[in-house]
């Protein structure tokens, strides 16, 4: 076993949730269970169920990212915003490095509005 590329692509929580849930249905039907896979799938789905991704959809994430294009944010920063949509200025300061220099107060408010719009808080 040999890794070729340890980080070939990022996955957001929603994507992982989708894949694991399909996997769960498939393995239950076919009755071909791999124990360690069943354990880790169960635990991961259990964790993800309590996160915002259960209310997201492929469409809402796409629209969110489209709306975020006007800000110069890195891929990792946007990924974090999809996984944990920021609701307060404080959260944006944590996610975005040197946010005070890179984002104006208006930008910060816009980002909060965008995430509340596409990922309404529950």
């Amino acid at each position: 076993m040999e890794p070729i590329k340890a980080n070939a692509a990022f996955l957001c929580n929603y994507e992982v949730m989708q894949i694991l849930q399909q996997l769960k249905d498939k393995t239950q039907k076919k009755n071909k269970r791999v124990e360690s896979l069943a354990t880790v799938t169960y635990e991961t789905v259990h964790y993800l169920q309590d996160t915002e991704c259960k209310n997201q959809s492929a469409e809402s994430i796409q629209n969110f990212l489209e709306a975020m294009k006007i800000f110069k944010l890195t891929k990792a920063e946007k990924l974090m915003m999809v996984n944990t949509p920021p609701r307060t200025e404080l959260e944006i300061q944590l996610i975005v490095q040197e946010s005070e220099e890179r984002l104006s107060e208006e930008d910060v408010q816009k980002i909060i509005d965008i995430s509340n719009n596409y990922f309404p808080p529950t």
């Binding site: 076993m1 890794p3 992982v16 694991l20 791999v34 360690s36 896979l37 799938t41």
Partner: peptide, 23 residues
Amino acid sequence: TILLNRKLANKVVLNVGLCIALF
């Protein structure tokens, strides 16, 4: 698919991370 999941699921690969499931 079955063999890879049996081998890797819920295991750590050095400098890669904790493996969850085959994509």
